[in-house]
Design a protein around this nucleic acid. Structure first.
Length: 112
DNA sequence: AAGTTGACTATTT
DNA sequence: AAAATAGCCAACT
């Protein structure tokens, strides 16, 4: 179990994703100050997924799709509906239009 | 200490 | 468009 790390900043970024918007793993990594660590972002969320205040499902891959976790497969579909509930539109393939819904953080957001 | 793994991404088939 | 390949780097064994 690997807790205590720079992951804290990753969680902070994810929590700042506005309702109805999404961010990619690479984007979160970059905002957290650790570009190229997209995989580590996924790994960080892997620890926190089940019961957390963190809207982990607002983080999707560069294709605009949900990355299915190895242990929570069925849960992923359920969470996809939560995103729809937030106003995010999925294509027939289950993709999100990143051009419309990808989070565009402002300086104000990052200062929080 | 060294090798394997992975909620990624970009490139190539 | 979907699948395979390569590059990536921290955590895990």
């Amino acid at each position: 179990m690997a807790e205590r790390s720079g992951y804290e900043q990753i969680y902070r970024v994810v929590c700042q994703i506005p309702r109805g918007q999404v961010a990619t793993y690479g984007q979160v990594a970059a905002l957290a100050g650790i570009p190229r660590h997209a995989r580590q972002v996924g790994y960080a969320l892997y620890q926190v997924a089940p019961s957390s205040d963190i809207p982990w499902q607002r983080v999707v891959n560069a294709q605009g799709k949900i990355s299915y976790s190895p242990f929570r497969e069925g849960n992923d579909d359920f969470q996809q509906q939560l995103l729809i509930d937030e106003g995010v539109v999925f294509d027939p393939d289950g993709k999100i239009d990143l051009q419309e819904y990808q989070w565009q953080p402002t300086d104000f957001d990052l200062k929080q």
